Amino acid sequence: MGEQQYASVDAYIASFPHDVQTVLEGLRCAVMSAVPDAVESVSYHMPTFTFEGRHLLFVAAWKTHVALYAVPGFEGELEAEVAPYRSAKDTVKFPLRKAVPYELVAAIAARIAEQRVGG
């Protein structure tokens, strides 16, 4: 898991067990619903979403969790919601044994896209 280069996001998702595929599809849908103009690709061996030519989010699945990478710090309420899932400065992890908060994933993607436009 995670070391092979994948030809597409679909190929990456298909390489995991069905239950993890479902979670990855949920992450994908959350990002794309929040940022419809995002573009999918595979970069650094993981699904990558770009927006306006810049990286928005990287997504990866591991044995016990899924993770979002390059998630900046936020101010206020959004950071308070993200904080329990932060495992590093720019990493957010969701355990596979618990329900993934897809609404939070969408909010993260939307805020990063806002920052890209404003910054």
Rank of each mutant, 00 (worst) to 15 (best):
A99I: 01
F51I: 07
A113L: 10
G26D: 12
A7K: 15
S87L: 05
M46R: 11
V31S: 02
G73H: 10
V23E: 00
R116Y: 06
A34H: 02
I108E: 00
S43L: 10
H45D: 11
P101Y: 00
L68W: 06
V9S: 04
L27W: 09
A60H: 01
A14L: 06
V20L: 02
C29I: 09
E75M: 08
E25P: 04
D10R: 13
L56T: 01
G73N: 09
T22D: 12
P47G: 03
V39I: 14
P36Y: 04
Y12H: 10
F94N: 08
Q5N: 13
G73R: 10
A109P: 00
A61S: 14
F74T: 09
P36D: 06
P47L: 05
V105N: 01
L78S: 11
E81V: 07
A70G: 14
G26I: 06
K98Y: 02
C29L: 09
H65S: 10
K63R: 14
E79M: 07
A30G: 08
R111V: 04
K63S: 13
T48A: 13
V66Y: 04
E79A: 11
L57M: 06
T48G: 02
L27T: 11
D10V: 10
A61D: 03
Y102N: 09
V9Y: 02
G53D: 09
V92Q: 08
M46Q: 12
G73Y: 08
Y44V: 08
K93H: 11
E3P: 01
H55R: 15
V71M: 07
G118M: 09
G118P: 04
I108L: 07
V20H: 05
L104Q: 04
S41E: 13
K93L: 03
F51Y: 15
A60G: 15
K89Y: 03
E114L: 05
V31D: 04
F58H: 15
T48E: 03
R116G: 05
V9G: 04
Y12G: 07
A38I: 05
E79K: 08
H65T: 07
A83S: 12
F16A: 12
I13R: 06
R111P: 00
Y44Q: 11
K63M: 08
